[in-house]
Simulated assay, not measured.
Amino acid sequence: MLESILVCPAQWFFEREAGGVSAVHQSANLGQVLHALAERVATGDLPAEVEPLMAEVEAVWDRLAFRTPWSRQRELARIRKAVARFVRWHLDNPREFLGAEQRFQSVVDVDGRPVLLTGFADRLEIDDAGRVVVVDFKSARSAPTGPSVAGNLQLALYQYAVDTGALDESAGRPVASGGAELVQLGIDDDSAGAKVQPQPPHAEAGPERLTLRTGLARAADLVRAETFPATTGPHCRDCPFTAICPARGAGSVTVQ
């Protein structure tokens, strides 16, 4: 959500605040199912085995919406690969499990004003140095580049939340961030393992933390002022709100 509002405040407002969210796309089906399975495996509710997990998938698959019958079958084949990758990653993972789908919140000071960080983490783990590593499972068909991972705002926010005490209670002690990582499960190829893309720990005075705090300050200013200007860019190509956008459309129903 932070990234969305920084890319285009108007698009963020139309989608998040004005009720413009469209129906769940079929690509979201795979992600929602994978996250549910990962949580149940982490908590011991389901075994870390492909066939029992696929039985859970097939039990709900006919209730999910797909554009075409062939895409339903294609996505089922893709989720089988994703489940196998998750099982292998889970079994090979040396870190200690702390929590799954866990809500967190922390109040931070940004330019002398309080900002509440709140969200959910797919998985929390403790590394061999006692630090918290936040894992974010991804089901996209392709993975971002290395520079995109290094600058990933979602991972940076997870790290900032950990460093400002959001998970101290869950861990039972003050903890610091050991970094965060994307675990790519849905890549559309024949790879057997998950692609893990780590973001190293951020220093409090480092450039990554400064960039994040600058973005938080900008987002907080927009929300407090209730002003959401339209910003043009590559994201406009897929924007469903072009017709009412003050920068690209007629602009007759909005005021920038």
Score class of each variant (00 low, 15 high):
residue 178 G to C: 00
residue 52 P to I: 09
residue 103 R to K: 13
residue 6 L to Q: 09
residue 69 P to H: 07
residue 78 R to V: 09
residue 97 F to D: 12
residue 36 A to K: 05
residue 82 A to K: 02
residue 180 A to I: 03
residue 189 D to H: 13
residue 247 A to T: 11
residue 134 V to F: 00
residue 168 D to E: 11
residue 143 A to N: 02
residue 7 V to C: 06
residue 125 E to C: 06
residue 49 E to V: 03
residue 137 F to M: 11
residue 15 E to M: 03
residue 116 L to M: 15
residue 78 R to Q: 14
residue 92 D to L: 13
residue 2 L to F: 11
residue 7 V to Q: 10
residue 114 P to G: 00
residue 33 V to D: 12
residue 119 G to A: 00
residue 51 E to A: 13
residue 113 R to K: 14
residue 210 L to T: 12
residue 102 Q to H: 13
residue 76 L to C: 10
residue 190 D to I: 06
residue 175 V to F: 00
residue 140 A to M: 09
residue 80 R to C: 04
residue 145 T to M: 08
residue 202 H to V: 08
residue 166 A to H: 14
residue 71 S to Q: 11
residue 211 T to K: 09
residue 152 N to W: 04
residue 255 V to S: 14
residue 182 L to K: 01
residue 202 H to D: 13
residue 63 R to E: 14
residue 195 K to G: 10
residue 68 T to S: 15
residue 27 S to G: 11
residue 247 A to G: 14
residue 224 R to F: 00
residue 73 Q to M: 08
residue 9 P to T: 12
residue 102 Q to P: 00
residue 36 A to H: 06
residue 52 P to N: 12
residue 52 P to G: 10
residue 104 F to L: 07
residue 9 P to D: 10
residue 45 D to G: 12
residue 76 L to R: 15
residue 146 G to D: 14
residue 115 V to L: 15
residue 7 V to T: 15
residue 222 L to M: 09
residue 229 P to R: 04
residue 83 V to W: 06
residue 153 L to H: 03
residue 113 R to C: 07
residue 175 V to N: 01
residue 247 A to I: 12
residue 201 P to D: 04
residue 75 E to M: 10
residue 58 E to N: 10
residue 243 A to W: 10
residue 98 L to Y: 01
residue 127 D to Q: 01
residue 84 A to W: 00
residue 189 D to W: 13
residue 106 S to Y: 05
residue 230 A to R: 00
residue 45 D to W: 04
residue 198 P to W: 05
residue 141 R to T: 12
residue 125 E to Y: 02
residue 151 G to M: 06
residue 63 R to Y: 11
residue 230 A to P: 12
residue 64 L to F: 10
residue 34 L to G: 03
residue 101 E to P: 02
residue 86 F to N: 03
residue 182 L to M: 05
residue 206 G to N: 01
residue 209 R to Y: 02
residue 22 S to H: 14
residue 145 T to V: 05
residue 129 A to E: 15
residue 92 D to P: 08
residue 135 V to T: 15
residue 225 A to T: 13
residue 144 P to E: 08
residue 187 I to R: 14
residue 25 H to I: 11
residue 137 F to E: 11
residue 20 G to S: 08
residue 212 L to F: 10
residue 209 R to Q: 12
residue 50 V to W: 08
residue 91 L to K: 13
residue 211 T to L: 11
residue 218 R to S: 14
residue 16 R to F: 15
residue 66 F to G: 04
residue 156 A to N: 08
residue 222 L to I: 07
residue 159 Q to P: 03
residue 116 L to F: 02
residue 200 P to G: 09
residue 256 Q to C: 07
residue 107 V to L: 06
residue 168 D to T: 09
residue 163 D to P: 03
residue 138 K to S: 05
residue 179 G to V: 01
residue 110 V to R: 00
residue 129 A to M: 08
residue 27 S to F: 11
residue 119 G to T: 01
residue 93 N to V: 05
residue 182 L to S: 00
residue 23 A to I: 10
residue 65 A to W: 15
residue 90 H to L: 02
residue 41 V to K: 03
residue 238 D to N: 06
residue 107 V to G: 00
